[in-house]
Every structure is written in C-alpha cells, then in structure tokens.
Computed example of a mutant assay.
Amino acid sequence: MTELLQPAALTLAILADAALGEPVWLYRRVAHPIILIGQVIAWADRRFNRESATPAARRRAGLFVCLAGVAIAFLLGWGLQALLLSFPGGPLWLGLLMSTLIAQQSLYTHVADVAKAMELSGVEGGRIAVARIVGRDPEVLDEAGISRAAIESLAENFSDGIVAPIFWGLVLGLPGMLAYKAINTMDSMIGHKTPRHLDFGRAAAKLDDAVNLPASRLAALLLILAALVLKGARAAAAFRAVKLDATRHKSPNAGWPEAAMAGALGFAIAGPRRYHGVLVSDPWMNDGGRWQLKAPDIRAALALYWRACALLALAVLACAVS
C-alpha cells in the first residue's frame, strides 16, 4: 500500500459515516470541509468573474479558478494525510477525516424524510421535504412527482456523493477526495448555464463531468448487483434500462445510476419536469416503467440504495485486505 492509497482508512471512513452520519455537534463548532471549500469558491466568483469582461476572458478566469482550486485542495489533502499518518493510529484519524467527505447516512436521511413527510402530512408535507434536496418547482409536484424527484436525487447523489469520493479516495487517497469535492462543489455553485456563469463556470462543469464518469458507471453496476439481493428487484431489467436509456439523459453521468435504479424497481423516472417555471422535456429513464410512484416506492429505492452501499463497502474492504 502506498502513502496515497489507503483502503484501510477508507473502509473505516465508510463504516463511520454509515453508523454515525454527520456529527452535528462538531459542525456547530468547526465548519464542514465542504462549507470552507464553498466559501473560497464564492470569494473567487466575486473576485474574478467580472461582468464587464469578454466571454473569452471570463472563460480564462474560470479555468484559472478551477485549476487553482483543484491544486489547492489536492495539496491540502496531501499535507493532511501525511500529517495524520505520522501519528499513532494514523489510518484511524485519516479514516475519520475521510468520512466527512462521504454522504451515505445524510443522503438516506434526506430522502427518507420525503417519504415520511408524505406518510404523515400528504402532498404538502412531501413538497416541503423534497424542496430541500431538488431544484425543481415543488408547488407543481403531485405525489408521483415528489416520489420521482426523491428517487432521482437518491440515484444521482449515490454516484456523486458516495461512489465518486470513495473511488477517488481509493485512487489518490485524501488528496483525491478533497480535489474531487472541490470540483463537485465548484460545479454546483458556478457550473450553471446562466448569464453570469455560462462562461466562467464552463471549465468547472466540464471537469465535473470528466471526474464523475467512472463513478457513474460504477454506481450503475453496484445498483444492478444490489438488485440481485433485494426481493422484488430485477437485475436483468436494471441492466437493460442502463443499456437503453442511460446515454439518453441530458447529463453524461446522471442517467447511469438513475436508469439502473429505475430498471431494478420497475419505475420510470426523469422525464418532463419543471425548473423555475420552465418545462424541461427530458427522456424517461426505464421508459415504459411505472411512473405513478408513491412513498412506499421511495422506501424501496432506499432499500436498494443501502444494499449498493454495502456492496461498495465490501469492495473497498477487499482492497484493504488484499
């Protein structure tokens, strides 16, 4: 095992996050690493994204900010990893820090809250809960729309929030995880096709697509395998949905885990939806599946999700003991 390849620490990180989730008591006192990254990106956006600049100049500024942010995050991760591994029990401390960059428990909680809200308070409660995790207009969502939004968020964030940081942690250790989170955070903050960020955020959006490519395919594979161990799920249908529909998604990556989850459970997700009053006509993932979804269907998706997380943990553990 090299210094930058720490599957043992990463195994501890996965287990710690699954068991404990985010330590709220700690983040009341110390800012979460992603919050700190976001603050730096917001400062860079204000400082370098000048509306008076030409589109070409804004693209160059955005590329500079993107590369500088990734370099700083990588070097910070390298320094922290070297420091922690110099202490007694170094992999334990490294694993605990790595766990802050994985979102298994928090993703489960946020999506489960949508199902719980609908079970207790109906559509109105579901709209309030789902608005916390998706950007679409909640006031126009019915029970099926809320359920599909929650399941789509679960599938996409399984790739972005769990598989991707763990993948880059296996490849490059803590430096890879921090660099990935910097890229992902930049994309979420400035990688939008709005007048302000169309040019400045282009590099961040393109780089985010690139670094999420391996994780999205791996996430789809894990969901297909998880369907083998979930009663009522169908791995063959999940594989077929990925083969037919994954590349039809507007995102080069999101369609893979969404199609896999939809196919495994017999659902149809994505499709036409509304953002800020604008109807977006996207293809269905697992076209022909059942789209009139309800709270119990969110619960089924969460059951598949946890099995996929367990398979990922076993794969990382196998790397640690090999």
Results as ranks from 00 to 15, higher is better:
residue 148 R to G: 05
residue 222 L to W: 03
residue 308 A to D: 01
residue 284 W to K: 03
residue 87 F to G: 04
residue 40 V to R: 15
residue 158 F to A: 12
residue 268 A to S: 08
residue 200 F to L: 01
residue 45 D to V: 02
residue 41 I to G: 09
residue 254 A to V: 11
residue 66 C to W: 02
residue 85 L to C: 05
residue 147 S to M: 03
residue 181 K to P: 09
residue 287 D to W: 03
residue 71 A to K: 09
residue 256 W to V: 10
residue 157 N to M: 12
residue 233 A to Y: 08
residue 279 L to T: 13
residue 42 A to F: 13
residue 146 I to A: 04
residue 211 V to E: 10
residue 10 L to A: 13
residue 265 L to E: 02
residue 203 A to N: 07
residue 246 A to Y: 04
residue 12 L to G: 10
residue 311 L to Y: 07
residue 174 L to F: 14
residue 123 V to R: 12
residue 4 L to Q: 14
residue 222 L to I: 07
residue 98 M to F: 08
residue 180 Y to H: 10
residue 235 A to Q: 06
residue 81 Q to F: 13
residue 162 I to T: 14
residue 94 L to D: 02
residue 266 G to A: 04
residue 85 L to K: 06
residue 62 G to K: 00
residue 83 L to A: 14
residue 75 L to T: 12
residue 177 M to Q: 14
residue 3 E to W: 13
residue 35 I to S: 11
residue 121 S to M: 02
residue 24 V to K: 15
residue 271 G to R: 10
residue 300 A to D: 11
residue 248 R to I: 13
residue 14 I to Y: 06
residue 67 L to G: 11
residue 2 T to K: 13
residue 236 A to I: 01
residue 111 V to E: 04
residue 141 L to P: 06
residue 39 Q to G: 14
residue 240 R to V: 01
residue 246 A to Q: 08
residue 129 A to L: 06
residue 86 S to D: 01
residue 51 E to Y: 06
residue 4 L to F: 15
residue 60 R to N: 08
residue 213 L to P: 09
residue 109 T to V: 09
residue 286 N to L: 03
residue 139 E to K: 03
residue 14 I to S: 13
residue 293 L to P: 01
residue 166 I to V: 15
residue 232 G to K: 06
residue 90 G to C: 01
residue 148 R to H: 06
residue 8 A to D: 10
residue 279 L to H: 01
residue 40 V to S: 13
residue 123 V to A: 09
residue 105 Q to S: 06
residue 148 R to Y: 07
residue 15 L to I: 11
